[in-house]
Design a protein around this nucleic acid. Structure first.
Lengths: 152, 152
DNA sequence: CACAGTTGGTTCGTGTTACGAATTATCTGT
DNA sequence: ACAGATAATTCGTAACACGAACCAACTGTG
């Protein structure tokens, strides 16, 4: 299989795993992604749009729906009366922690056919792919959280 | 970066490229995917649902919309009066050929930071990931179509 | 052959996702 | 002070996705 087909198919696979995991936590993949982005810190709408690759108008709705289910909250930006900071609620923080851990667990299960050295190699190659192409941080590193397999 | 984050982010990246490419051909990502699946041969609705990971009812709509824009057609299954075979129209075949080629070209551009040996290695590792996890053939191999870089 | 059960698809209702254009309110630079 | 830029929202539209209910054609077992 060529590198192109391999990339496209593996991305399809990871997507499916992500979506299935989200679903079990009562989240849509987009809501899950939003929560994951917000894990380390709150963000403004425009910033979020950049990270998630969405138009502002798309984001308003996503945040609305996620807020309606009590997982995020709009806070006023102290420095700019126009702006808003989207932050996790306590409930959202709890939920995303579980969702994130479970998703990591599942994704981590995908390369079980690879031995440790190969996993490291794959991680290294993909990392370069990602950093060479300026992918926004839609899924960060949390030290633990990837039980027993991320190369340290 | 651990293998989990690398997988999730690269999949986000590939998705974005796929979606952008589709958009330029007037396709939604889903329609693009449908067309790509149909490239080698027609399929029944149930089969398509399995390949694309969609519920039957979701597929009806997708095929409806894609048919409405003249890209696919429902043909009667000669062996089963209930069943339907979804096939590309001439227009759809032409379009998907271009879309597929362009998408390959773009995805192929992603790992430009890797040398030839690394690309081959990445392809090999991801191929195993994909085949170990029984990913449906949402994006096949077409020999040429991945200009100048898929290891032959 | 008959008919219960399965299978292939569609329909319907609901909610989510995504966009662009237009709008409002606040900020910024000159 | 005020013309623009910027942060968000609203609105209208279309696509997407699901489950439940449904219909029609197939299948196997008696």
């Amino acid at each position: 299989m060529g590198v192109v087909a391999a990339l496209v198919r593996s991305s399809f696979l990871v997507n499916a795993v992500y979506a299935a995991s989200a679903r079990e936590y009562g989240l849509t993949p987009q809501q899950g992604q939003l929560l994951c982005v917000l894990m380390p810190q709150p963000y403004g709408m425009t910033e979020l749009g950049g990270i998630l690759g969405l138009a502002k108008s798309s984001l308003t709705g996503l945040v609305d729906r996620t807020a309606r289910s009590g997982l995020v909250r709009r806070e006023a930006d102290p420095d700019d009366a126009r702006a808003v900071r989207v932050a996790l609620t306590d409930e959202g923080a709890t939920l995303v922690e579980e969702f994130y851990a479970e998703t990591c667990r599942r994704v981590d299960l995908l390369p079980t056919g690879l031995d440790e050295g190969e996993r490291v190699q794959l991680a290294e190659l993909l990392s370069r792919l990602v950093s060479d192409n300026e992918v926004p941080v839609v899924f960060m590193e949390l030290d633990e959280g990837t039980p027993g397999a991320n190369g340290r």
